[in-house]
Design a protein around this nucleic acid. Sequence first.
DNA 1: TATGAATGAGGGTTCATTCAT
DNA 2: AATGAATGAACCCTCATTCAT
Lengths: 213, 213, 213, 213
Amino acid sequence: MSQLSPRTRKKEARPAELLVAALDAFRERGFAATRMEDIAARAGVSKGTIYLYYPSKQAVFEALVRERLLPNLTRIEAALAMTPASAPDRLRMVLAALTRVANDPRLLALPKLVLTEAGTFPDLARFYRQEVVARGLRLITDILEQGMQDGDFRPLDPQAAARLFMAPMILAALWQGAFASIEDNPLPPAALLAQHGEVFLRGIAARPEDIPP
Amino acid sequence: MSQLSPRTRKKEARPAELLVAALDAFRERGFAATRMEDIAARAGVSKGTIYLYYPSKQAVFEALVRERLLPNLTRIEAALAMTPASAPDRLRMVLAALTRVANDPRLLALPKLVLTEAGTFPDLARFYRQEVVARGLRLITDILEQGMQDGDFRPLDPQAAARLFMAPMILAALWQGAFASIEDNPLPPAALLAQHGEVFLRGIAARPEDIPP
Amino acid sequence: MSQLSPRTRKKEARPAELLVAALDAFRERGFAATRMEDIAARAGVSKGTIYLYYPSKQAVFEALVRERLLPNLTRIEAALAMTPASAPDRLRMVLAALTRVANDPRLLALPKLVLTEAGTFPDLARFYRQEVVARGLRLITDILEQGMQDGDFRPLDPQAAARLFMAPMILAALWQGAFASIEDNPLPPAALLAQHGEVFLRGIAARPEDIPP
Amino acid sequence: MSQLSPRTRKKEARPAELLVAALDAFRERGFAATRMEDIAARAGVSKGTIYLYYPSKQAVFEALVRERLLPNLTRIEAALAMTPASAPDRLRMVLAALTRVANDPRLLALPKLVLTEAGTFPDLARFYRQEVVARGLRLITDILEQGMQDGDFRPLDPQAAARLFMAPMILAALWQGAFASIEDNPLPPAALLAQHGEVFLRGIAARPEDIPP
DNA sequence: TATGAATGAGGGTTCATTCAT
DNA sequence: AATGAATGAACCCTCATTCAT
């Protein structure tokens, strides 16, 4: 992999460069309003070059989701598998990971784009539903169920509670795209998620008085 | 709806008919992908007729927000102004109102559309930001501050907490558009919001043990 | 004709009112850019009413030319037929008539409109060519030939000279439409035609020194 | 013109090819009635190609005026600046240049188009007024004033006389577009201008008897 | 006779995609 | 592999004309 000559390595890097350019373009204008020429210009190549690597504009979008979002999810899954932490602490770990994502506007843009464009691209929505959403929700429901068994959380519908746990993240993602440019005093995503951790953990705790403020 | 030909139906009903048709079309395909002809066909009129009532596609969208979403907000504001209820009960009232909206897919589609298309239509985003979001958030922050003063809620950042309170509503709105068609066993918005009410109220309560489960 | 009741007279006047409105509209925006609704609004009627009197927009235009331009031409022909004046004086009479037309922006607009739109309406062009241009040129060529016979004018090609005699009139007509609105110090048509009379009469005179300055 | 396919022809020639095609199309149908597709078909390219070189239909028109009409004017100005000829001879030079333009139907179509469409395109009218009309009139008024000083011309209003000098040219331009196709025995523009030179020069001469017939 | 809501063909413009170089 | 000129389908909007009242 790293034995390749610079010339070859450059060729290999091209698709990734294109995806970065596409992500920035999509972030700024949305999928529909982004022209292939915009992406090409950002990547410093010509319009036709994109088609050497991706057969269509939609394919660029799909590659973006596939290659940028999933690795983050996999990383969290791995970290959780290795730790013996309690359910509340695991939720805190997930929240910390989400906060890292939320602080990177590029990463934060991906869920927003998917949600925004899912209606127009059923294939993408299906892929995202299965590969990202389902896996992400399972992560949370597993923790919730463990917490209920351990007596840390009171009885909950894990499906609903898992979605509630993710909701502020989605809100933060959408907010940046929708109102970022016109918002006078934007609330930083990190502050939102911090408060969320407190409120949510207390809200589901079996003994709320034990939760540090 | 009516079997009468367009020329014989009453013209006063036309704008409302067009908005309903437009909302259904936007719900199904999004704003950008909806053609004026789609809206016209749904309304049982011809393309040009729309322009007798709205000067552009964007104007149709704006009318939709203005005439469908704002009245609901105004109604809640009025109801809250008249009641002597405590802060927690006020939050429950708002949640009940949100649940009513969430159970009407047409209404629920509007916030989703705005969030989805806001990037492309800064004017609309600004209008929505001021007339819907700002007013809605003030509603919640007022309640939260009252609750803190009354000793019902523990100390919170009202700006963050208000957004957290709304987050599941946004999630429900997005979910239906993005994944409704492909979701195997969708979680009803009402169930999500019910659980949210419980968790959130406990999470912010000064004495969580007083909150009924 | 004048025995009709007011109610009937009003109906009879409708077509003429429409033509006046159409002329004003055409003057201001040209034929193509004038909408039937513009004409209707000026005439104080509704769009559909125009179609009760004229089957199409083009028909309105043709009626305008037919009923407004020809009578003026006929009047000059009649005046010339009755006078025993010399050829130079006849030319001066024609010029005086043209000056009266040139001072009435409404009348002046008609030749301009025809010239402007003739390319798009071959039927109209043919009618105008035969009924207005040919008759008008014959008027002038007759005078020029009389003047040559009488020894007042030097030998000329009457076809060319007749067109030269009319050229400044055409120029004045076009000028008002094309540049009237942006011209800083417009030259009044009457001044142009006055100078033209002098220059042209001297230019074709057999004894230019006899022409008063 | 070339039998090569558009993709193989040279791109440098494209703008000029498009202008020729556009001029022919405008000549035949006028600006408003010409569709971009007409121009494209004449140029042997597709509709979209035009937009690679000109941002709008109006821009095509403006380029036409700018690149076809102005150079002719500049050429005359330069020629006059270099010659020591008398005022009458200068007028003859201008007339010769006008005759060359008048003999080229394509060139002759441009002033006609501007005059015809000026009402609808104020920007174009303003540009033409300043860059073509004003410069052209100054050319003539300068000559007229020199001629009056030299005692070659009798006292005149130079503004009016300059317009009178141009009037037959305008007439010729309009005539071809308006009636060319239906005229039975058209008078060649050259003959008209030749006679005009004679008549006008005699008409403004201080000593008409010196003017050769 | 008069209205004005409704129609729908038509055209300017955009842009994802193709392809000759 | 890379280019970028060329393509042409698609879509918003206009407005002359129609027709039920």
